[in-house]
Computed example of a mutant assay.
Amino acid sequence: EDWLELGMVVGGTKGCFVDCVGVLGSCVDFRGEGLFREVCGRRGGWRSSWMMAVGVVNAVQTQQKPGSWEYVKEVRELAASFCDTTHQSRDAFWEVIKNEAQEAAAEEPLLASFLFATVINHGSLHSALSFHLANQLSGPSFPSTLLMEICMDVYEAEDIFCQAIRCDLAAVLERDPACTRFVDALLYFKGFSALQAYRVANYLWRKQQYPLAQYLQSQVSKELQVDIHPAATIGPGFFMDHATGIVIGETAVVGKNVSMLHHVTLGGTGKSHGKRHPTIGDGVLLGAGATILGDIEVGEGAQIGACSLVLEDVPPHSTVVGVPGRIVGRPGTAVPAFNMRHEIRE
């Protein structure tokens, strides 16, 4: 009861109040529930918060258990629909993610408070994402509240951001067998976090807010070890597996549904201004440690082998390996970024 009263007093906010319930986790018994309802009644209008708090410590009943292989197969089949930006589709996708968070909180009560504050307490995906990025990237001289407000403003500015976030998130679950829930990708996969922070910085750059965009890029590089220039162009459905050490230069262009692994570099050559970084076509797969330099084009559906050095144009639907890179065959599928297979086929 002391914990529950403290939650009401500290800050007097729904977040602080329910946060204490999250600490208690599944230990909230009938007496705690009664007091919670009583205090909610005194404070007024918190019925929905109570229901959400109960959801944190109780698994949501779904057709398939989130995280199971059956669940992964089911949501992978629906992944394309998650990129739909209609209001109904957005709400349905967000409900899936919140249900996963509730299931995760039931599995591990020690994370109940974190999951409530970061996911379940939010009304939309972009709100939860803004909150999470702000906590990851804020610093002593740049508070998380201000950074969250900036992210929220950017994500709400253009509808294309809603589509890109969902396509990027769906890509993680589709292409990474280590990911079994959308909420895990949202919270724990730094490639996704770095990409969404880039999308904010890119918007700021296009609005000529250069210092703020560069500050955000610097924080991402320092905290997440991913360096994407805010002026680069990256399409939706982009997947960075592991992500550590990825560098994407200022004039690089990355198409739709591209996959790359850690330590990939899309770098420039020379010191002149203008286009000096690669253009990567749709559906390309870039293996770990691949380096692509200069104003060259990697055609759609191409595959670049791990640790290859590419200095010349790559035709569409071809496989390149070696230092320097040479064409050795064709990928086994039209869109190698989707199946993530790195075998060399002649």
Rank of each mutant, 00 (worst) to 15 (best):
D313C: 02
G44Y: 03
V320C: 07
A171F: 01
D29E: 02
A112Y: 08
P278M: 12
A117N: 15
W205G: 04
V56F: 13
M260K: 00
P278W: 03
P140Y: 13
I120V: 15
E74C: 11
T279E: 09
E300C: 05
G237L: 02
S49L: 09
G123R: 11
R181P: 00
L169S: 08
E149I: 04
K65D: 10
A194D: 08
L4M: 01
G325K: 01
Y203K: 09
P278A: 08
I246V: 14
A105N: 10
Q225V: 11
K275T: 15
V323F: 09
G45C: 01
T244D: 07
V298L: 00
S138D: 04
G283M: 01
F114G: 06
V28L: 10
G255S: 03
F338C: 11
L147Q: 10
E5S: 02
A80L: 07
H263K: 05
A106R: 10
G287S: 02
W3K: 15
Y203H: 13
A112K: 04
L133P: 05
G267I: 04
V335I: 13
Q208G: 00
D29G: 11
S144K: 14
F93S: 07
G7I: 03
V226S: 09
Q214T: 04
V172F: 12
P177S: 09
H262F: 05
R326G: 06
G34Y: 06
G289L: 01
F114N: 11
E95T: 15
A117Q: 14
H273I: 00
V56T: 14
Y215F: 14
V328L: 02
I234Q: 09
V335H: 09
P316G: 06
L309P: 01
V226Y: 06
L146S: 14
I246Q: 08
C83S: 15
A101P: 00
Q63E: 15
G267T: 09
F82G: 14
A194R: 01
I304E: 07
C83F: 02
M52L: 15
L173N: 07
Y198F: 13
C162H: 15
K256E: 05
V28A: 12
L311I: 03
Q208K: 11
G289R: 06
L224F: 00
N339I: 04
P336Q: 04
I344L: 10
L212P: 03
V200D: 09
S49I: 05
V60A: 15
A106E: 00
L195R: 06
F131E: 14
C20K: 15
G15M: 08
K207S: 11
G237M: 05
A171E: 06
Q196A: 06
G281S: 12
W205I: 04
N121I: 09
V75C: 00
G12Q: 07
A117P: 00
G25S: 00
G235Q: 07
H87T: 10
D159T: 13
V310E: 02
V75M: 10
A92G: 13
Q219R: 14
R76T: 07
V9G: 08
G299A: 03
C162S: 12
R47I: 08
Q163R: 15
L204Y: 08
W94M: 01
S318D: 05
F17G: 07
V172I: 05
R341E: 06
A185R: 03
V253K: 13
V321W: 05
G12H: 06
H122A: 09
C307R: 12
